[in-house]
Computed example of a mutant assay.
Amino acid sequence: MSTVLYARVSTLEQNLSHQRTQAEAAGFAIDEVIADDGVSGVSTRLADRPEGRRLFDKLRRGDVLVVRWVDRLGRNYQDVTDTIRHFMRQGVVIRTVINNMTFDGSTTDPVQQAVRDALIAFMAATAEAQAEATKAAQRAGIEARKGDEGRYRGKKPSYDRKQYQAVLDLLVEGAGASVIAKATGLSRQAILRIRDDQAGAEKALAKWEA
């Protein structure tokens, strides 16, 4: 039996080594890391990624697949739920670093199965919803750069691109505003503004990056 960490990054603001460090800090003894760098979790299924394919060939009954959160497997609802259920049928246990979730296909109790499956569905849906919100915000940012050249840009945001991305990542993981504020160094009010109007926050940031 082995414990494999699957890591994925799709932007410059994310970091592969941080995902292993975070997993080990949470108490996971990682035997091997399989990672995809610069791969979208929205448009590319896990089975179609260069390293993601290896998981389907490598993992065996009794192995543990560790991911930072389910969005590392993907941000498409159907792909994530299909992937997790496939591995559970193979006898692989999936564990998340964030929130310490465990998805195990060995249970035969129907109530436990129902709770597990509902949780998988909820987390996969959350990952896709966050991805859609991010795409909408990015489109708003692109339009802001196109249409506001030479115009008044308004008040400069209190956050930079790295902080903004960190806020989005923590929001999708279910962290509260106070926790995110402490982690990013931003005010709680700034976190709430980003949470409640992600498109507007992206647009304001894009104006000052142009």
Rank of each mutant, 00 (worst) to 15 (best):
A25R: 14
L16M: 08
L46T: 00
S40W: 04
A35V: 01
S10Q: 07
S2K: 15
R20A: 11
L5K: 10
I30E: 10
R8L: 09
A23W: 01
A47K: 15
A47Q: 12
D48M: 10
V42S: 11
N15S: 15
A23E: 03
A7Y: 08
S17G: 10
R49F: 03
S17Q: 13
Q19V: 08
R53E: 13
V33M: 13
D37H: 14
G38M: 03
T21L: 14
I30Q: 09
A26W: 07
D31N: 15
R8N: 10
V39T: 09
G41F: 04
T11P: 03
V33H: 00
L5C: 04
L46E: 03
D36M: 05
A7N: 04
Q19E: 08
V4D: 03
E32W: 04
V9R: 09
G52H: 04
Y6C: 07
D37R: 15
V9L: 09
E13P: 00
R20L: 14
Q22I: 11
D48R: 14
G41L: 02
D36N: 04
E13N: 13
A35Q: 12
T21Y: 11
T44L: 14
N15I: 01
T3I: 14
A26I: 05
A7K: 06
L12T: 07
G38V: 07
R49K: 12
Q22F: 14
R53L: 11
D48G: 08
V4R: 03
P50C: 07
S40P: 10
T3E: 10
S17M: 06
Q14F: 09
R20M: 10
I30M: 08
P50D: 08
